[in-house]
Simulated assay, not measured.
Amino acid sequence: MELIYGIKDRPSLGKVILFALQQLLAIMAATIAVPAIVGNGLSASAALFGAGVGTFVYLLFTKSSSPVFLGSSFAFIGSMFSAFGGAASVTVGYWGLIIGAVMAGLVYVIIAIIVKCCGVKWIDRLMPPVIIGPTVSIIGLSLSANAVSD
């Protein structure tokens, strides 16, 4: 697969505006949808605030070399439902969410350290496109019931 734009390439202003609008719509929909689907008092404004803070921290660590916005992930909806479903109260469910987020963050930090030390070729061998594609599809299909019911 060949990239359309290299890391140092800059699209024209018109394309930047179009790409930014596309990104805004996708991220806003996801960041607002996740709290709405999970419920239990989760706030879309808190999700947007957390996504914004996370994005600024990411940009500081990467020295703005990668134009990424960190938003809500649909991949964690199942575990978020479990945190509330298995909890004795909503407050305990929130603690489950916090502990789960910290643990997921630690896993990401460990993977980042491995990538920093060993590079990314091991990821391509461990998870080739033939694995990643179906995994993303399964996540989407598992959420289809929520899309229909909501």
Rank of each mutant, 00 (worst) to 15 (best):
M1I: 05
I4P: 00
Y5Q: 03
I7Y: 15
K8A: 14
D9N: 03
S12K: 13
V16H: 09
F19Y: 12
A20L: 07
Q22D: 12
L24W: 14
I27C: 07
A29Q: 06
A30H: 02
T31M: 03
I32L: 14
A33Y: 05
V34H: 01
V34T: 04
P35S: 00
A36C: 11
I37A: 02
V38M: 03
L42S: 04
S45P: 02
A46W: 10
F49C: 07
G50D: 00
A51R: 03
G52K: 05
V53G: 12
V57N: 05
L59A: 05
L59M: 13
L60A: 13
F61S: 12
F61N: 13
K63I: 02
S64L: 10
S64V: 07
S66M: 08
V68M: 13
G71C: 03
S72Y: 02
S73H: 07
F74I: 13
F76H: 01
S79F: 14
M80H: 02
M80W: 02
F81I: 00
A83G: 00
A83P: 01
G86T: 07
S89V: 03
S89G: 09
V90L: 09
V90A: 14
V90E: 15
T91E: 15
V92H: 12
G100Y: 01
A101D: 03
V102I: 15
A104V: 07
A104C: 09
L106R: 06
V107T: 10
V109Q: 06
I110Y: 14
I111L: 15
A112S: 08
G119C: 04
V120H: 04
K121R: 09
L126M: 14
L126Q: 09
M127V: 14
P128A: 05
P129E: 00
I131M: 08
I132Q: 03
P134N: 02
T135V: 08
T135M: 06
S137I: 09
I138G: 02
I138K: 08
I139K: 01
L141K: 01
S142Q: 08
L143C: 02
L143W: 04
S144I: 10
V148K: 14
V148Q: 09
V148W: 10
